[in-house]
């Protein structure tokens, strides 16, 4: 049962996997991510991606602020596509194995604002 109306998707599982990334990457107040943060973002599981999307990046309650902020961080880490929260990677991300990857486009540079 959700504990907060602001974070309706905060499941116990999310509560377990989110703090690490939140603390390391999104609670710094800086749009320049650390190497440690980028490493974790790159190795984050689909569960973590889904939780971050649902509760933070694309959470309607905060996405107007966290969206651009997260975008800046994930873009700099080169993982914007993974955290685009557009439904392509949300929850169903397959990053290991698998010969049919439909989400493998290069995202070296994304547009600004």
């Amino acid at each position: 049962e959700p504990q907060s109306t602001m974070f309706p998707e905060m499941t116990p599982e999310c509560a377990t996997v989110m703090p690490d990334l939140l603390e390391k990457c999104f609670a710094t107040g800086s749009v320049t991510p650390t190497e440690d943060c980028c490493t974790d973002l790159k190795s984050a599981t689909s569960t973590q991606v889904t939780c971050l999307c649902d509760n933070y990046i694309a959470n309607p309650a905060v996405s107007n602020i966290t969206g651009p902020y997260s975008k800046a961080i994930t873009t700099k880490c080169g993982v914007f596509d993974k955290y685009s929260c557009d439904g392509t990677s949300k929850g169903g991300e397959e990053k290991k194995g698998g010969s049919s990857s439909s989400n493998g486009k290069d995202n070296g540079k994304s547009e600004g604002n």
């Binding site: 905060m10 939140l22 603390e23 609670a27 710094t28 509760n55």
Partner: peptide, 25 residues
């Protein structure tokens, strides 16, 4: 801008706390 970033950081901290609260209960 920097202000929005700090707000976003605050949101993250809030989320962090929310998740911790969830874990505790």
């Amino acid at each position: 801008g920097g202000r929005a970033n700090s707000v976003a950081a605050s949101m993250a901290m809030f989320g962090l706390l929310a998740s911790l609260v969830f874990v505790m209960f």
